[in-house]
Design a protein around this nucleic acid. Structure first.
Length: 483
RNA sequence: GGCGGCGUACCCAAGUGGCUAAGGGAGAGGUCUGCAAAACCUUUAUGCAGCGGUUCAAAUCCGCUCGCCGCCUCCA
């Protein structure tokens, strides 16, 4: 299994520190506002990494934090006139609602910065004692020049950074690149007791403290959005390695951005879409599919058109699931092999390996999805030839199981076709109930039986205008939502 | 300015040295159908931004040019 490591800039064979066990820490969110689709991407990508590694038999421990104390939270609290911790609570709950809908599982530990003040203070104290940090006016700063590896993750050297530093000059810092480990708090701000007076943790230190506590000094995978490489992750390395004297993380993994008109989606540009906005227009599974249909490190251009294509793909999948189910529910006794039996059988023999190969190659979900659709086509082709008998049933059953297995890894395609159509009906705002549709189908069936094609076509057209497509099959008429 | 990435068909998107350049969407033609839809088949890149080079062999490696983007400040 290969993973691209930001630290080395190369795809590397993945070897966990301890055979069979993997520890992963992913930076979560600062809970001060609604999450946008970029947050969703990061969450979904790491969720799939976890699901895949578990499916490969690893014992997996996943930590994802919440930053629940920070300037932005304090500002938001002032704006809204509520307590800072109420802000954090509110957006934490919202985060869970969004992630649940996107099929993102809970991490094994979901630590909050404010629950780790003791550990944070301990580390800051240690860093001061070891001479990596200094105190000024109740704040403590990390002295970047004391850490020789500074810049190794983001591939820049200290002198270049200082030359082009756009950071505000802060007289208290020895070097403009020094960063706060502990911030003295102003009157009325949330604060905790510390050897340097009342204060609160800096942004980067919480991740060092929480990963150390829950995963140990050195762990396997640390991830987050590519915008965290500098300064956040660079600073984490500096703190953690200075404190423990040991390597911090073996594989650094970063996901690419979502773009709008080719530009990074971000709060400051105002070109972002919240997860809630998107889920009002598109089904959550389509959103998840969209996020996984491009390799995690590449940028993804966000657009309604892309989401619609994702829906179309999922619809194709469920249409095949429906056919599989119908096929298996038929009594078929006569052994009648299809002409593609051998080809299908061969494809099934290789399918899981191909899927695994794709995922083993730095979690290439786009390629993995491609292999799923190759099988979908083959299955349709095979069923088109109307095979029957135990041999055919066995093949289709086997294919069905394999599709379930790969779907589980991606956490896609786990609904019934009916659930999918109902969800589409809701999200597309179809002004009909399932009963309405079935009633019309019955009426149309009567018209068809008396060969009243005009009447039958009228009903088809009427439903079509409302976004419902009818499909006449041997054993009755089915319906689906037009994507 | 420093560092990094990207440019594959009408659109999206895999592919990082060697078999027919995945897959999805859209278009055209066909099979099937009372008509449709779905599905399947055929078709749409002798071609991978451009130009040179290395190699028996390049979308894939190297160089240059053009275009786009990201990080260097909070950011998934």
């Amino acid at each position: 299994m290969k993973i691209y490591n930001t630290l080395t800039g190369k795809k590397e064979e993945f070897i966990p520190e301890e055979a069979g066990r993997v520890g992963m820490y992913a930076c979560g969110v600062t809970v001060y506002d609604h999450c946008h689709i970029g947050h969703a991407r990061s969450a979904v990508v790491f969720d799939v990494m976890r699901r895949y590694m578990i499916s490969r038999g690893y014992q997996f421990k996943y930590i994802r934090n919440f930053t629940d104390i920070d300037d932005k939270i304090i500002n938001k609290a002032k704006q809204e006139g509520i307590a800072w911790d109420a802000v954090a609570r509110k957006y934490t709950e919202e985060y869970y609602r969004d992630m649940d809908r996107l099929g993102v599982g809970r991490a094994d530990v979901e630590p909050k910065a404010t629950d780790h003040i003791e550990e944070i203070v301990e580390i800051v104290k240690g860093l001061v004692e070891k001479g990596f940090a200094y105190e000024r006016d109740g704040s403590v700063y990390f002295e970047v020049e004391k850490f020789h590896g500074y810049g190794k993750l983001s591939k820049r050297d200290l002198e270049d950074m200082m030359a082009g530093a756009r950071v505000e000059v802060d007289e208290r810092k020895r070097n403009p690149m020094d960063f706060a480990l502990w911030k003295a708090s102003k009157e009325g701000e949330p604060s905790w007791e510390s050897p340097w007076g009342q204060g609160r943790p800096g942004w980067h230190i919480e991740c060092s403290a929480m990963s150390l506590k829950h995963l140990g000094e050195t762990f396997d995978i640390h991830g987050g959005g590519a915008d965290l490489i500098f300064p956040h992750h660079e600073n984490e390395i500096a703190q953690s390695e200075s404190y423990t004297g040991r390597p911090f993380v073996r594989y650094w993994v970063h996901n690419g951005f979502i773009t709008v008109d080719k530009e990074k989606m971000s709060k400051s540009l105002g070109n972002f879409f919240t997860i809630q906005e998107i889920l009002n227009k598109f089904d959550a599974e389509a959103v998840r599919f969209f996020l996984l249909s491009t390799h995690y490190r590449s940028p993804i251009e966000f657009s309604d058109e892309q989401l619609r294509e994702a829906e179309a793909s999922i619809d194709r999948y469920y249409t095949t699931v429906l056919r599989i189910r119908d096929f298996l529910s038929q009594e078929s006794t006569k052994e009648k092999p299809g002409p593609d039996e051998k080809a299908l059988s061969e494809m099934l023999g290789k399918f899981l390996d191909k899927f695994r190969e794709a995922m083993d190659d730095d979690f290439n979900t786009a390629l993995a999805i491609g292999t799923i659709f190759e099988l979908v086509r083959m299955l349709n082709k095979y069923m088109d030839s109307r095979p029957s008998g135990s041999q055919a049933v066995e093949l289709i059953k086997k294919a069905d199981e394999m599709l379930r297995e790969t779907g589980n890894v991606l956490n896609l395609f786990h609904r019934t076709p009916e659930e999918w159509y109902r969800a589409l009906m809701a999200v597309k705002g179809i002004g009909l109930t399932e009963d309405d549709i079935l009633a019309r189908i019955t009426e149309r069936q009567a018209a068809r039986e008396r060969k009243d094609w005009a009447d039958a076509d009228f009903i088809r057209k009427e439903l079509d205008e409302k976004g419902i497509l009818l499909e006449d099959r041997k054993d009755g008429t089915g319906w689906k939502v037009r994507v």
